[in-house]
Design a binder for these strands. Sequence first.
DNA 1: GTGTTTTAATAACGATCATTATGAAAAAGA
DNA 2: TCTTTTTCATAATGATCGTTATTAAAACAC
Lengths: 203, 203
Amino acid sequence: MGRHREFDVEKVLDAALCVFWRKGYEGASYADLTEAAGVERPALYSAFGNKEALFRRALDRYSERYVGYIPVALQLPTAREVAAHILYGAADLNTRYPGHTGCLGINGAVAGSDEAEPVRQALIDYRAAGQAQLRERFDRAKAEGDLPETAKPEALAAFVMAVTHGMAVQAKAGFSRDMLEAVAEQALSAWPAGRRSGHQPGS
Amino acid sequence: MGRHREFDVEKVLDAALCVFWRKGYEGASYADLTEAAGVERPALYSAFGNKEALFRRALDRYSERYVGYIPVALQLPTAREVAAHILYGAADLNTRYPGHTGCLGINGAVAGSDEAEPVRQALIDYRAAGQAQLRERFDRAKAEGDLPETAKPEALAAFVMAVTHGMAVQAKAGFSRDMLEAVAEQALSAWPAGRRSGHQPGS
DNA sequence: GTGTTTTAATAACGATCATTATGAAAAAGA
DNA sequence: TCTTTTTCATAATGATCGTTATTAAAACAC
């Protein structure tokens, strides 16, 4: 019983995601969010709760709809291909939408006031989870001989993540896709070769 | 004639710099700034102007007092040493002070509200200037044979900057110095060798 | 059709934001 | 000592922040 909801929750969530992507968590005001979503303030509160809950829903949606290239990358046969797919995938995602360059995980919460600390921590956890997946994948690669015995999977994962974060910062500063791809190419040019890797540096 | 200023302008500026470093531009309120500086609000306005002017003064001081390792790096004889000095210098600066990890250039302005756009642009310009210096240094290295003819100085500079930005993001997330140094080491492991470079990959 | 329940929209809430009037206190010149 | 000038400290400015009362409208049950 009762009145039906008149707006599409998923469309509203997409609109909020775009605002957060562009302005970060604290920079996105309810005035921005309601204007982008086309609904009034109380509708956002009744549908999602408060601002932090709305952001977490937007982060979930971001993960589902835009970061799919990472699980795809993790399925690739060699570590180099994994890293390459992630690096070029980040280069693409960071520059694909002119209205919101960079990535939500970096734009949202690098710094800010104390009140946003739980949100920053959520984003840190989000990035850490991705890095842990990458590290596990590199552990496997080492066991399979795709990475040499001397390779340090944890450091390799942190390195790949650092480059992607750095590209996100650069994308927000307006770097071209070509430049980001050149960054990715350079990051890959020293990838350690394993027993079963056909790649030779410089070949 | 008139009354003397009772506080030390440089000490106040240092205090403001620490607050901006920790909380970013928009996250730092005047309540934070006056508490850290130990002076009242109108004193900050009379000495520095408004918040944006105070931030720019703090950015200048940051450049003078904390980023000296970059001009030092630019004087080193080989491009690899330049990149290594910058990468390890960033690893150090990003983790040296537990109270304000990361770096001001990244923490301050990756995302935020529209009102802070000029400040974000100032930080983008600041980072771009550093990258331009690096690129010029790599141009020289190429001319001197320290980088191979195939090397792309612009891409190399963007790559080094991307890694440093990524490390700044990671430092803000609590990464250890050891981990950041491992990231830097990996970034260097593929550095292109020129005619006059004694380095061989893997040696 | 009446009553109940849920949503929609307007407008207000207290808190905090950056920024300043305002007036007292202090130092310099006459 | 008196006047002038600058700084200091208290407190208030209008605006915006995230969050909600409040009331009107719409959709079900009976």
